[in-house]
Design a protein around this nucleic acid. Structure first.
Length: 286
DNA sequence: AGTGTGTCCTGTGTGC
DNA sequence: TGCACACAGGACACAC
């Protein structure tokens, strides 16, 4: 679900509660999400202190005092809700659609000066959590083959073009591949290709070069703008606090099939690539 | 090896 | 209103 900007927004919202907090108690209401929780999940967390809350691609990383890191992925519909006693309606899940408490799967009882609970709610259960030794984080299965962080130093134009050059798949598929660049999902891939004026059907190898430079730049622009806007705003996504305005951001092509292109007035189309909808403008994406 | 397809799961919106 | 159906932001297992 959430792509890099949304995960980053969640990280920013959770950090004040999580960082420095003792996990006084942790509960899991079922043995698995998408995958089984790791062995002794609850007991390995209980009593640990959260030292840091980071992010890699679409994953949240809670660095623990025990030497392990809690890896959390929100899947399509995962969200965290904080109750620190200051909400207008304490304990009430607040964004529309309301979180059904049936899907509250993990509760972290935190204390970093004052007590708060962080509840993980995930109707579709496409999310997952894992615990790995912090020392071996880079080598764990989730990150071993992951590409560079787009807003970090490793995402250079040269490296990006080099990665595209060897790929015969459509550029749309290449950008969704987390080994090429981390954190992009269906929405921001559509948006970046639109802004760069590149057809989603074009072979990735044919994008390497001038088009690759442009695409690289538009990926950065669109991600930065979305983070600035506080994450994007699909109805399925909620920030961690009741009153954060996450529902204002609109996309230029995503979910706008049949509407006019803002740039060239052509009609925005939708095609299916690797089973996912691609929204694009055939007038200005070549 | 690289690429495309099917699958996990529930909720929501559309059309009849 | 009730129902069936399509579709949803991700990642992985699998077949070619």
């Amino acid at each position: 679900m959430p792509e890099l900007p949304e995960v980053e927004t969640v990280r920013c919202g959770l950090a004040p509660v999580f960082e420095g907090a003792d996990l006084v108690k942790v509960t899991a209401s079922r043995p698995d999400l998408r995958f089984p929780f790791p062995k002794n999940f609850v007991s390995r967390l209980t009593g640990a202190r959260v030292d840091t809350l980071g992010r890699r691609g679409k994953y949240l990383l809670a660095g623990l005092s025990t030497g392990e890191t809690l890896i959390m992925h929100l899947g399509m519909s995962g969200r965290f809700v904080i109750d620190d006693g200051t909400a207008k309606t304490p304990g009430k899940f607040n964004q529309a659609p309301a979180c059904n408490p049936v899907h509250n799967h993990v509760v972290f009882y935190c204390n970093n000066g004052k007590p708060a609970t962080v509840t993980y709610n995930d109707p579709r259960r496409f999310g997952f959590m894992d615990l790995v030794a912090t020392q071996a984080l880079e080598d764990c299965k989730q990150f071993k083959a992951m590409g560079p962080e787009p807003l970090g130093n490793g995402f250079s134009v040269v490296a990006f073009n080099a990665a595209l050059k060897t790929k015969s798949a459509p550029i749309k598929a290449a950008l969704l591949d987390q080994r090429v660049v981390a954190g992009l999902g269906n929405i921001y891939v559509c948006e970046a290709l639109y802004r760069a004026g590149i057809s989603p059907r074009r072979r990735a190898s044919s994008v390497a070069g001038r088009r690759g430079e442009r695409l690289h730049s538009e990926i950065l622009t669109v991600l930065r703008a979305a983070i600035k806007a506080g994450g994007s705003s699909l109805r399925d996504f909620a920030g961690v606090h009741e009153d954060l305005g996450y529902f204002q951001h609109r996309f230029e092509v995503y979910d706008r099939e049949g509407e006019k292109c803002p740039k060239c007035d052509s009609e925005i189309g939708r095609i299916v690539q690797s089973g996912r909808s691609t929204f694009y403008c055939s007038g200005c994406q070549r």
